[in-house]
Amino acid sequence: MAGKKEEANIKAYSQNFTTMTPGPFAKKMRTCVIFQIIRFIIINLKMLVVVSKSH
């Protein structure tokens, strides 16, 4: 099978045909510990801003 396995769940003209799907790099970065430590800090800072605006 020559296709990319990340795209294998898409079925032509089904309900999921028009959405986006992540490639291997995007999926790898989701669990890349170093990258996620950076994201952890950034997400926490963003959440703190929203929390501070809400109290």
């Binding site: 669990t31 996620q36 997400i43 801003v49």
Partner: peptide, 14 residues
């Protein structure tokens, strides 16, 4: 500016 979202391991840690 204050509405965002992303999926990843960091979210699980949080």
């Amino acid at each position: 500016d204050y509405t965002f979202g992303e999926i990843g391991l960091a979210g699980h840690w949080i």
